[in-house]
């Protein structure tokens, strides 16, 4: 079983390399990565660098979410790139690499994603909500970024205090 690196392991900060060879070695690693994702409590995604393997490989499976959400089932995302994103939403995230902590993070609500599958074939995905959030969290891992670097306040993000200023006078 692949071991999950946990913060503050410096290896989590490394930027992962693109996958160039789609051969048996890759498929064997994907099987091991799936096992690691499925072993985690409520794990709906995993990125290869969380196991010390610095390649641009992400697995996502939002069909495993505790409460049902729109999802594309199990996704093997190799060399994933976000090509469009829109909307912003605060949501609560946790991470297998940061045990026993959850925090609020702002992410895009809808994203378009291009990625290759295990055979190297390119696909485009339109994701939203929870699934879009998971993918953004995972792609951050490929760039050596943990959600700890994106935390927003427990309080002020929920209700921004409005300034009740008088409207500009007209005329």
């Amino acid at each position: 079983m692949l071991a999950i690196l946990t913060y503050p392991d410096e290896r989590l900060k490394r930027v992962s390399e693109p996958v160039e060879r789609f051969e048996d070695e890759l498929r064997a690693f994907l099987t091991a990565l799936e096992e690691a994702m499925d072993a985690g409590p409520g794990g709906v995604g995993i990125a290869a660098p969380q196991t010390g393997h610095t390649q641009r490989i992400v697995l996502v499976d939002c069909s495993k979410a505790r409460k049902p959400v729109p999802n594309h089932g199990r996704l093997v995302l190799i060399n994933p790139e976000l090509t469009t994103w829109e909307g912003m939403e605060v949501g609560r995230e946790g991470c297998l690499s940061v045990p026993n902590y959850t925090g609020n993070v702002i992410r895009a609500v809808r994203v378009t994603l291009q990625a290759q599958d295990a055979q190297g074939e390119a696909h485009t995905y339109h994701l939203e909500g929870f699934e879009a959030r998971v993918v953004q969290h995972e792609i951050d891992h490929l760039d050596g970024i943990l959600f700890l670097e994106r935390l927003v306040s427990r309080r002020s993000d929920l209700f921004q205090r409005k300034n009740y200023l008088p409207s500009p006078s007209k005329g």
Partner: peptide
Amino acid sequence: EPIQTFSC
């Protein structure tokens, strides 16, 4: 609103 927290 439900809060759905994930771990990944």
